[in-house]
Design a protein around this nucleic acid. Sequence first.
DNA 1: GCCCAGGGATGCG
DNA 2: CGCATCCATGGG
Length: 277
Amino acid sequence: MKITKLSNKIIVDNPTDFNVIQTLCCGQIFRYVIDGNTAKVFSKDKMATLSFTPQHIEIVSTDIDYFFNFFDFGTDYKQIKDQLSTDKLVAPAIKFAPGIRILNNDAYEMMISFIISANNNIGRIKKSIEYLCSHFGSNMGDYYAFPTLEQLKTATVEDFKQAGLGYRAEQMFDTVQKLTNEDIDFLKQAETREKQKKLMSFKGIGEKVANCIMLFGLQVKTVFPVDVWINKVYNHIFNKNETDRSKITRELTERYGNLSGYAQQYFYYYYRENKIG
DNA sequence: GCCCAGGGATGCG
DNA sequence: CGCATCCATGGG
């Protein structure tokens, strides 16, 4: 794989460690549109347009530096995959989707997005986020930006219900009203344990959602989010009937250590795409 | 009509 | 602490 960063685009040749579909469809991002061999990806108020074939990928944006980091091009995934492939359980998942990368998305956007994700499905999560963007975010011409914290603070509980948040509307309102930019700055520099503690002090954020926010928005790879699907797969693999997700989280985090986040994504996509569990 | 979705809050012992 | 119950909503 060869990555070339130009002033107005990024070119990836022989993309052995990057597949657009796999990276966008593994549940880590909700704002994207795939249309044939092109895709649009949104983060904060920014957009990138990707065109891809099996041999060649081009990423065009007005903020190349942002998306170079966003797609995690500073990380060597070959080394991560080699190391993880020694594990019997993850090896087939890596073979199935060797082009997954973990995005470096915006912390605040991940907080709002994953509060919505709780006990919800991806289709509805996307719709709710789109609603918030189009009703509270800035008009960027051909798309809407994710609403800033200041913009989202103008939303009422009724607005969040209109967005389809259901019973999460009150939680979201409470969290948005209490959240400050200082909180987000704190999250970015705090120790992992302090990040989790701080995140879970907000309504609508429990262990799993906090782990997702850390993994996708705060560059913490030592966490292993356990959702209903991972729970099913765990029971399937180990022939158990475990319902305590904290216990599963502890077990899998211990097993995969500082590569937990990567392992979880390969795991999640593979078993979900193949409907195992 | 039931079951499920990238779970969390609350109350109870 | 562990555990049970409830929580809106749309799609299968």
